[in-house]
């Protein structure tokens, strides 16, 4: 039987779309950042992945129901601990760099850059989604940065969805890896 949380993919999809209209919606993404962490720290489970993650649902829908996946096995290196933990660390470094850039704008040391950086490399001009809000430019900088993270991970996830199994993103998803690590530590294994 379908439960209400089986439809959270609609929110994930809406989130990605809203970012094309007003970048400040990107702040909402913090929900899918903190919820998994809180669940793993407090309850010691991967309840977020197992139930609520709309992104995972979106991939299983597109790759499964819509058949946009070759449904091949992921290569062995991709499920190795070295790659998963390495990608988590890389993701963290890039995330803190994004926070640093945000700080610079908050501190007035840098100008707001209305770009979304895809795959940590390609800067896409994104002015159409910023309308000079009343908020501090730093708040907008964070939105651009955070949306870049979300869109980048979606693109990576879509690529591996097509190449391998629908939810192959879940194999190396930093959130999934981190919550599993927290559970391992918390439950001492």
């Amino acid at each position: 039987m379908k439960m209400w949380y089986d439809y959270l993919w609609i929110l994930s999809l809406s989130y990605l779309i809203l970012g094309f209209f007003n970048i400040l919606f990107a702040w909402l993404g913090l929900i899918c950042f903190f919820t998994p962490l809180v669940i793993s720290v407090v309850k010691g489970t991967k309840g977020y992945c197992n139930r609520y993650c709309g992104r995972g649902q979106l991939f299983s829908l597109l790759g499964g129901r819509f058949g946009l996946s070759r449904k091949r096995d992921v290569p062995n290196w991709m499920k190795s601990k070295a790659f998963r933990y390495g990608f988590l660390i890389f993701f963290f470094i890039m995330f803190f760099q994004m926070l640093w850039n945000t700080y610079l704008v908050f501190a007035g040391a840098a100008e707001l850059k209305q770009v979304v950086t895809l795959l940590w490399t390609f800067r896409v001009s994104w002015q159409w989604a910023y309308h000079g809000e009343l908020l501090h430019p730093g708040a907008a900088q964070f939105a651009f940065g955070f949306y870049s993270v979300m869109l980048t991970s979606t693109i990576l996830g879509l690529i591996t969805m097509i190449l391998f199994k629908p939810r192959s993103w879940c194999v190396y998803c930093p959130m999934g890896t981190m919550t599993q690590l927290i559970c391992k530590v918390k439950n001492k294994e």
Partner: peptide, 10 residues
Amino acid sequence: SLCVACGCCV
């Protein structure tokens, strides 16, 4: 040892 505990199988 290689399970990522995603819960897709569940």
